[in-house]
C-alpha cells in the first residue's frame, strides 16, 4: 500500500466544507421560499457564504498538493 496521507486528510477536511455548503444553500432556498421578494439580496448573501466556505475546502486542496 502506497500513497499519501494528504489525500485522506483532504477527504476528511472536505466533509466539513460539504456540510457547510449544504447548509448554506439549503437554508438559502428555505429563505427564498419564505420570502420570494427578497430573492436578490438573499442570493448575494448565499453566494458570499458559499464562497467563504468553499475557500476552506480549497485551502485544504491546495495544502494537500503544496505540502505533498
Amino acid at each position: 500500500m502506497e500513497g499519501s496521507l494528504n489525500v485522506i486528510g483532504y477527504g476528511i477536511s472536505v466533509i466539513g466544507a460539504g456540510i457547510g455548503v449544504g447548509i448554506v444553500f439549503g437554508l438559502g432556498m428555505q429563505a427564498i421560499a419564505r420570502q420570494p421578494e427578497a430573492r436578490g439580496p438573499l442570493q448575494t448573501n448565499i453566494y458570499i457564504g458559499f464562497a467563504l466556505i468553499e475557500a476552506l475546502a480549497l485551502l485544504g486542496f491546495v495544502l494537500a498538493f503544496a505540502l505533498g
Binding site: E2, G3, V7, F65
Partner: peptide, 10 residues
C-alpha cells in the same frame, strides 16, 4: 501526491 510520481507541482 495521490500516490503517484508527479513531474511538477500541480
Amino acid at each position: 501526491m495521490l500516490g503517484l510520481a508527479a513531474e511538477e507541482n500541480v
